[in-house]
Amino acid sequence: MWWYIGRRVLQMVPVILGATLLIYGMVFLQPGDPVRALFGDKPVSPSVVEQIRADYNLDKPFIVQWLLFLKGALTLDFGVNFSQEQISQVITDAMPVTFRLALMAFAFEAVLGIIFGTISGLRKGKFFDSAMLVVSLLLIAVPIFVLGFVAQFVFGIKLGWVPPTVGGDVSFQRLLLPAMVLGSVSFAYVLRLTRTSVAENLSADHVRTATAKGLKRGQVVTRHVLRNSLIPVVTFLGADFGALMAGALVTEGIFNVPGIGNELYQSIRGGDGASVVAIVTFMVLVYAVASLLVDLLYAALDPRIRYDK
Protein backbone atom coordinates (compact mmCIF):
# COMPACT_ATOMS: atom_id res chain seq x y z
CA MET A 1 0.00 0.00 0.00
CA TRP A 2 2.60 2.58 1.10
CA TRP A 3 4.83 1.31 -1.64
CA TYR A 4 2.06 1.95 -4.12
CA ILE A 5 1.40 5.47 -2.81
CA GLY A 6 5.09 6.28 -3.02
CA ARG A 7 5.27 5.07 -6.61
CA ARG A 8 2.17 7.03 -7.58
CA VAL A 9 3.54 10.23 -6.03
CA LEU A 10 6.78 9.74 -7.95
CA GLN A 11 4.78 9.29 -11.15
CA MET A 12 2.95 12.53 -10.43
CA VAL A 13 6.16 14.55 -10.32
CA PRO A 14 6.98 14.62 -14.07
CA VAL A 15 3.33 15.29 -14.92
CA ILE A 16 3.16 18.26 -12.59
CA LEU A 17 6.54 19.56 -13.75
CA GLY A 18 5.39 19.24 -17.37
CA ALA A 19 2.12 20.98 -16.63
CA THR A 20 3.85 23.92 -14.96
CA LEU A 21 6.28 24.22 -17.87
CA LEU A 22 3.35 24.19 -20.30
CA ILE A 23 1.44 26.86 -18.41
CA TYR A 24 4.57 28.88 -17.84
CA GLY A 25 5.35 28.75 -21.54
CA MET A 26 1.85 29.78 -22.54
CA VAL A 27 1.84 32.72 -20.17
CA PHE A 28 5.35 34.04 -20.60
CA LEU A 29 6.32 33.06 -24.13
CA GLN A 30 3.67 35.23 -25.69
CA PRO A 31 4.45 38.14 -27.93
CA GLY A 32 4.01 41.56 -26.38
CA ASP A 33 5.61 43.09 -23.33
CA PRO A 34 3.67 42.70 -20.07
CA VAL A 35 5.60 45.48 -18.38
CA ARG A 36 4.78 47.94 -21.18
CA ALA A 37 1.18 46.77 -21.09
CA LEU A 38 1.14 47.51 -17.37
CA PHE A 39 1.68 51.20 -18.05
CA GLY A 40 -0.68 51.45 -21.00
CA ASP A 41 -0.19 54.70 -22.88
CA LYS A 42 1.56 56.46 -20.02
CA PRO A 43 5.20 57.40 -20.65
CA VAL A 44 7.65 55.45 -18.53
CA SER A 45 11.38 55.74 -18.12
CA PRO A 46 13.49 52.82 -19.41
CA SER A 47 15.18 52.39 -16.03
CA VAL A 48 11.83 51.77 -14.34
CA VAL A 49 11.01 49.15 -16.98
CA GLU A 50 14.39 47.51 -16.42
CA GLN A 51 13.85 47.49 -12.67
CA ILE A 52 10.44 45.84 -12.98
CA ARG A 53 11.82 43.31 -15.44
CA ALA A 54 14.55 42.40 -12.98
CA ASP A 55 12.04 42.19 -10.10
CA TYR A 56 9.90 39.68 -11.97
CA ASN A 57 12.87 37.80 -13.49
CA LEU A 58 11.64 38.82 -16.94
CA ASP A 59 15.19 39.70 -18.03
CA LYS A 60 16.44 36.11 -17.71
CA PRO A 61 16.15 33.33 -20.29
CA PHE A 62 12.84 31.45 -20.28
CA ILE A 63 14.10 28.19 -18.79
CA VAL A 64 15.88 30.05 -15.99
CA GLN A 65 12.65 31.92 -15.24
CA TRP A 66 10.82 28.64 -15.03
CA LEU A 67 13.42 27.06 -12.75
CA LEU A 68 13.33 30.09 -10.47
CA PHE A 69 9.56 29.78 -10.37
CA LEU A 70 9.85 26.10 -9.42
CA LYS A 71 12.36 26.91 -6.73
CA GLY A 72 9.94 29.41 -5.25
CA ALA A 73 6.98 27.08 -5.64
CA LEU A 74 8.71 24.40 -3.57
CA THR A 75 8.76 26.76 -0.62
CA LEU A 76 5.24 27.99 -1.49
CA ASP A 77 6.70 31.35 -2.42
CA PHE A 78 5.16 32.47 -5.69
CA GLY A 79 6.48 36.01 -5.51
CA VAL A 80 4.30 39.10 -5.72
CA ASN A 81 1.60 40.00 -8.21
CA PHE A 82 1.25 43.29 -10.04
CA SER A 83 -0.44 44.90 -7.03
CA GLN A 84 2.55 43.93 -4.84
CA GLU A 85 0.58 41.37 -2.81
CA GLN A 86 2.19 38.05 -1.96
CA ILE A 87 0.59 35.59 -4.38
CA SER A 88 0.74 32.80 -1.82
CA GLN A 89 -1.22 35.06 0.52
CA VAL A 90 -3.83 35.73 -2.18
CA ILE A 91 -4.19 31.98 -2.74
CA THR A 92 -4.48 31.21 0.96
CA ASP A 93 -7.17 33.87 1.30
CA ALA A 94 -9.24 32.84 -1.69
CA MET A 95 -8.69 29.09 -1.61
CA PRO A 96 -10.88 28.16 1.38
CA VAL A 97 -13.86 29.85 -0.27
CA THR A 98 -13.45 27.95 -3.53
CA PHE A 99 -12.68 24.77 -1.65
CA ARG A 100 -15.90 25.06 0.29
CA LEU A 101 -17.83 25.83 -2.89
CA ALA A 102 -16.27 22.91 -4.75
CA LEU A 103 -16.83 20.52 -1.83
CA MET A 104 -20.49 21.50 -1.64
CA ALA A 105 -20.87 21.04 -5.39
CA PHE A 106 -19.04 17.73 -5.11
CA ALA A 107 -21.30 16.48 -2.31
CA PHE A 108 -24.35 17.60 -4.27
CA GLU A 109 -23.37 15.83 -7.49
CA ALA A 110 -22.06 12.68 -5.80
CA VAL A 111 -24.92 12.09 -3.35
CA LEU A 112 -27.85 13.10 -5.53
CA GLY A 113 -26.28 11.76 -8.71
CA ILE A 114 -25.71 8.32 -7.22
CA ILE A 115 -29.11 8.14 -5.52
CA PHE A 116 -31.09 9.28 -8.56
CA GLY A 117 -28.90 7.27 -10.89
CA THR A 118 -29.47 4.11 -8.87
CA ILE A 119 -33.24 4.60 -8.83
CA SER A 120 -33.15 5.26 -12.59
CA GLY A 121 -31.08 2.15 -13.21
CA LEU A 122 -33.37 -0.02 -11.11
CA ARG A 123 -36.43 1.28 -12.93
CA LYS A 124 -35.00 1.45 -16.43
CA GLY A 125 -37.59 2.60 -18.92
CA LYS A 126 -40.11 3.70 -16.29
CA PHE A 127 -41.35 7.25 -15.82
CA PHE A 128 -38.78 8.33 -13.22
CA ASP A 129 -35.98 7.06 -15.42
CA SER A 130 -37.23 8.90 -18.50
CA ALA A 131 -37.72 12.12 -16.54
CA MET A 132 -34.20 11.91 -15.12
CA LEU A 133 -32.78 11.19 -18.55
CA VAL A 134 -34.39 14.32 -19.96
CA VAL A 135 -33.22 16.45 -17.01
CA SER A 136 -29.66 15.16 -17.25
CA LEU A 137 -29.50 15.75 -21.00
CA LEU A 138 -30.74 19.31 -20.53
CA LEU A 139 -28.17 19.99 -17.82
CA ILE A 140 -25.39 18.77 -20.10
CA ALA A 141 -26.61 20.69 -23.13
CA VAL A 142 -27.23 24.07 -21.47
CA PRO A 143 -24.00 26.00 -20.79
CA ILE A 144 -23.32 26.46 -17.10
CA PHE A 145 -23.44 30.24 -17.29
CA VAL A 146 -26.93 30.21 -18.79
CA LEU A 147 -28.02 27.96 -15.94
CA GLY A 148 -26.33 30.41 -13.59
CA PHE A 149 -28.21 33.46 -14.93
CA VAL A 150 -31.52 31.66 -14.86
CA ALA A 151 -31.05 30.24 -11.36
CA GLN A 152 -29.83 33.59 -10.09
CA PHE A 153 -32.80 35.37 -11.61
CA VAL A 154 -35.47 32.86 -10.62
CA PHE A 155 -34.34 31.92 -7.10
CA GLY A 156 -32.39 35.04 -6.24
CA ILE A 157 -34.48 37.84 -7.66
CA LYS A 158 -37.97 36.59 -8.57
CA LEU A 159 -38.58 34.23 -5.65
CA GLY A 160 -36.06 35.77 -3.27
CA TRP A 161 -35.25 32.45 -1.61
CA VAL A 162 -31.52 33.07 -1.62
CA PRO A 163 -29.44 36.21 -2.05
CA PRO A 164 -28.60 36.62 -5.75
CA THR A 165 -24.90 37.28 -5.10
CA VAL A 166 -22.60 35.99 -2.41
CA GLY A 167 -20.19 38.85 -1.77
CA GLY A 168 -18.03 38.84 1.35
CA ASP A 169 -20.18 36.54 3.49
CA VAL A 170 -19.54 32.96 2.38
CA SER A 171 -21.97 31.08 4.59
CA PHE A 172 -23.47 27.69 3.71
CA GLN A 173 -26.83 29.17 2.71
CA ARG A 174 -25.30 31.76 0.44
CA LEU A 175 -23.08 29.24 -1.32
CA LEU A 176 -25.88 26.71 -1.79
CA LEU A 177 -27.19 28.00 -5.12
CA PRO A 178 -23.75 28.61 -6.71
CA ALA A 179 -22.66 25.15 -5.57
CA MET A 180 -25.69 23.51 -7.17
CA VAL A 181 -25.11 25.39 -10.41
CA LEU A 182 -21.42 24.46 -10.35
CA GLY A 183 -22.18 20.79 -9.73
CA SER A 184 -25.12 20.53 -12.11
CA VAL A 185 -23.30 19.30 -15.23
CA SER A 186 -21.32 16.71 -13.28
CA PHE A 187 -24.51 15.70 -11.48
CA ALA A 188 -25.94 14.81 -14.87
CA TYR A 189 -22.85 12.77 -15.79
CA VAL A 190 -22.81 10.95 -12.45
CA LEU A 191 -26.50 10.16 -12.85
CA ARG A 192 -26.03 8.76 -16.34
CA LEU A 193 -22.96 6.74 -15.38
CA THR A 194 -24.61 5.26 -12.28
CA ARG A 195 -27.75 4.45 -14.21
CA THR A 196 -25.94 2.56 -16.98
CA SER A 197 -23.70 0.80 -14.51
CA VAL A 198 -26.52 -0.26 -12.19
CA ALA A 199 -28.68 -1.47 -15.06
CA GLU A 200 -25.76 -3.50 -16.38
CA ASN A 201 -24.92 -5.06 -13.01
CA LEU A 202 -28.54 -5.95 -12.29
CA SER A 203 -28.30 -8.76 -14.81
CA ALA A 204 -24.92 -10.00 -13.53
CA ASP A 205 -24.59 -13.56 -12.30
CA HIS A 206 -23.58 -12.70 -8.76
CA VAL A 207 -26.68 -10.55 -8.36
CA ARG A 208 -28.88 -13.42 -9.47
CA THR A 209 -27.14 -15.66 -6.98
CA ALA A 210 -27.64 -13.14 -4.19
CA THR A 211 -31.34 -12.91 -5.00
CA ALA A 212 -31.61 -16.68 -5.30
CA LYS A 213 -30.16 -17.31 -1.87
CA GLY A 214 -32.93 -15.16 -0.44
CA LEU A 215 -31.35 -11.77 0.30
CA LYS A 216 -33.77 -8.91 0.57
CA ARG A 217 -33.97 -6.59 -2.43
CA GLY A 218 -32.46 -3.70 -0.48
CA GLN A 219 -29.46 -5.77 0.54
CA VAL A 220 -28.93 -7.05 -2.98
CA VAL A 221 -28.98 -3.53 -4.33
CA THR A 222 -26.73 -1.88 -1.77
CA ARG A 223 -24.23 -4.70 -1.23
CA HIS A 224 -24.01 -6.38 -4.58
CA VAL A 225 -25.27 -4.05 -7.29
CA LEU A 226 -24.24 -0.65 -6.01
CA ARG A 227 -20.79 -1.53 -4.79
CA ASN A 228 -19.88 -2.99 -8.15
CA SER A 229 -21.49 -0.15 -10.05
CA LEU A 230 -19.62 2.59 -8.27
CA ILE A 231 -16.17 2.02 -9.78
CA PRO A 232 -16.70 4.00 -13.01
CA VAL A 233 -18.55 6.65 -11.00
CA VAL A 234 -15.65 7.06 -8.58
CA THR A 235 -13.26 7.34 -11.51
CA PHE A 236 -15.34 10.15 -12.92
CA LEU A 237 -15.71 11.92 -9.58
CA GLY A 238 -11.96 11.87 -8.99
CA ALA A 239 -11.19 13.52 -12.30
CA ASP A 240 -14.05 15.91 -11.74
CA PHE A 241 -12.69 17.71 -8.70
CA GLY A 242 -10.16 19.50 -10.88
CA ALA A 243 -12.88 20.40 -13.37
CA LEU A 244 -14.94 21.86 -10.53
CA MET A 245 -12.02 24.12 -9.63
CA ALA A 246 -11.94 25.35 -13.22
CA GLY A 247 -15.73 25.60 -13.40
CA ALA A 248 -15.56 27.87 -10.37
CA LEU A 249 -14.08 30.48 -12.71
CA VAL A 250 -17.48 30.95 -14.35
CA THR A 251 -19.73 30.30 -11.37
CA GLU A 252 -17.81 32.59 -9.05
CA GLY A 253 -18.02 35.32 -11.65
CA ILE A 254 -21.81 35.08 -11.94
CA PHE A 255 -22.48 34.91 -8.21
CA ASN A 256 -19.64 37.20 -7.18
CA VAL A 257 -17.94 34.67 -4.92
CA PRO A 258 -14.54 35.93 -3.70
CA GLY A 259 -12.74 32.68 -4.54
CA ILE A 260 -9.73 31.54 -6.49
CA GLY A 261 -11.65 31.38 -9.79
CA ASN A 262 -12.52 35.04 -9.56
CA GLU A 263 -8.93 35.85 -8.64
CA LEU A 264 -7.66 33.87 -11.64
CA TYR A 265 -10.07 35.59 -14.01
CA GLN A 266 -8.95 39.03 -12.83
CA SER A 267 -5.31 38.01 -13.25
CA ILE A 268 -5.88 36.72 -16.78
CA ARG A 269 -7.70 39.87 -17.84
CA GLY A 270 -5.03 42.04 -16.21
CA GLY A 271 -2.18 40.12 -17.85
CA ASP A 272 -0.73 39.31 -14.42
CA GLY A 273 1.29 36.30 -15.55
CA ALA A 274 2.87 35.43 -12.21
CA SER A 275 -0.54 35.07 -10.55
CA VAL A 276 -1.98 33.05 -13.43
CA VAL A 277 0.87 30.57 -13.34
CA ALA A 278 0.73 30.20 -9.57
CA ILE A 279 -3.03 29.68 -9.39
CA VAL A 280 -3.20 27.26 -12.31
CA THR A 281 -0.28 25.28 -10.87
CA PHE A 282 -2.13 25.09 -7.61
CA MET A 283 -5.26 23.80 -9.38
CA VAL A 284 -3.27 21.16 -11.24
CA LEU A 285 -1.84 20.05 -7.91
CA VAL A 286 -5.32 19.71 -6.41
CA TYR A 287 -6.39 17.72 -9.44
CA ALA A 288 -3.40 15.36 -9.17
CA VAL A 289 -3.98 14.73 -5.47
CA ALA A 290 -7.68 14.09 -6.08
CA SER A 291 -6.94 11.46 -8.71
CA LEU A 292 -4.45 9.80 -6.36
CA LEU A 293 -7.12 9.58 -3.66
CA VAL A 294 -9.49 8.00 -6.17
CA ASP A 295 -6.98 5.31 -7.06
CA LEU A 296 -6.71 4.45 -3.39
CA LEU A 297 -10.50 4.36 -3.05
CA TYR A 298 -10.69 1.62 -5.68
CA ALA A 299 -9.36 -0.93 -3.22
CA ALA A 300 -12.10 -0.14 -0.75
CA LEU A 301 -14.72 -0.72 -3.45
CA ASP A 302 -13.19 -3.67 -5.22
CA PRO A 303 -11.16 -6.13 -3.15
CA ARG A 304 -9.84 -7.65 -6.37
CA ILE A 305 -7.67 -4.56 -6.79
CA ARG A 306 -4.50 -4.93 -4.76
CA TYR A 307 -1.65 -2.48 -4.56
CA ASP A 308 1.03 -4.65 -3.05
CA LYS A 309 2.49 -6.05 -6.22
Binding site: G18, A19, L22, I23, M26, V27, M245, I268, V284
Partner: peptide, 18 residues
Protein backbone atom coordinates in the same frame (compact mmCIF):
# COMPACT_ATOMS: atom_id res chain seq x y z
CA UNK B 1 -0.92 13.11 -18.91
CA UNK B 2 0.57 16.60 -18.81
CA UNK B 3 -2.05 18.01 -21.18
CA UNK B 4 -4.79 16.05 -19.44
CA UNK B 5 -3.87 17.47 -16.04
CA UNK B 6 -5.03 20.98 -16.96
CA UNK B 7 -8.83 21.33 -17.19
CA UNK B 8 -10.03 22.14 -20.74
CA UNK B 9 -11.66 25.53 -20.28
CA UNK B 10 -8.92 26.72 -17.95
CA UNK B 11 -6.20 25.74 -20.41
CA UNK B 12 -8.12 27.22 -23.33
CA UNK B 13 -8.40 30.54 -21.48
CA UNK B 14 -4.67 30.74 -20.91
CA UNK B 15 -4.02 29.56 -24.47
CA UNK B 16 -6.35 32.16 -25.95
CA UNK B 17 -4.65 34.88 -24.01
CA UNK B 18 -1.50 33.81 -25.82
Amino acid sequence: DVFFAIPLVLAAIVGLQM
